[in-house]
Design a protein around this nucleic acid. Structure first.
Lengths: 128, 128
DNA sequence: TATTGTCAACGAAAACTTTCGTAGATTATG
DNA sequence: CATAATCTACGAAAGTTTTCGTTGACAATA
């Protein structure tokens, strides 16, 4: 009985870690997610399970229950989730300024020259 | 007896709202912050006060107690805090990719052509 | 079939964040 | 001076997130 909220809530930090694994590996079981997660953080299996159940409740994940071992996948596209997070940070810390955020991002960590080229291409698109 | 943590923790959402007001108006009293804040959210004066006291404890704010009415200011520069948040989001949702984050940010909201030009300048710098 | 292992479900504890009521001190006002 | 207003401090309640122990169902296997 999924909740019927208008908007999907933002994933919490722990939830995002699970999403990252799903983004990298595609639909997975709890066991698989937990396996990957345990390389980064030290939490129990049931913690991961519980989080994923909560995420289904929130509409962040969907699952296939046709087998005993459920298969989970992201309910939103990666891009949609990322956009939501970026928009949120932009509002909360950059007063809504995309340029401000972009500039901090670029000065924060060196992007590869391919990345920079791709950003240029995007700029060209946006200006046309 | 201030804590002596090596790194300043990330501001929470409510804390970030307070920082935004400080960024806009400069060093302020609790009353002033609360006044500004009340335009966006509905919380009591003591809530704002308590948050700001916690923020001092965390090292997010500093205060001048020489007068009865304390004067608060940000303990980190705006840019430092923003970079910290951007870096965190980059890690948590973009697998450390600055380019990925930048591209979502640019496609999220139209930046002005001056902004775009400024970003180009930054790209030029980064490539040299 | 009996034992062992894996799974989902549940609930509650622990940790963290946000809220505000109350108290005591200081300053302003009548 | 007495009263009211304003401020900091404190602590605890309410809300949210993260953690994990335990249980019962099912499956693999000896």
């Amino acid at each position: 009985m999924p909740k019927n909220k208008k908007t999907t809530p933002e994933p919490t930090n722990a939830e995002l870690e699970i999403l990252q694994v799903l983004w990298e590996h595609g639909p997975s079981t709890v066991r698989q997610i937990h396996e990957q997660l345990s390389h980064r953080r030290a939490t129990g299996y049931t913690t991961t399970l519980k989080l994923m159940q909560i995420m289904v409740g929130k509409g962040l994940l969907a699952r296939d229950e046709s087998n005993r071992t459920h298969l989970y996948r992201d309910a939103q596209t990666r891009e949609k989730t990322q956009r939501q997070l970026v928009r949120s940070l932009m509002q909360r810390a950059f007063d809504g300024s995309a340029a401000g955020l972009v500039m901090q991002a670029l000065s924060t960590q060196k992007a590869s020259s391919e990345d920079l080229a791709e950003i240029r291409r995007l700029l060209d698109e946006l200006e046309s």
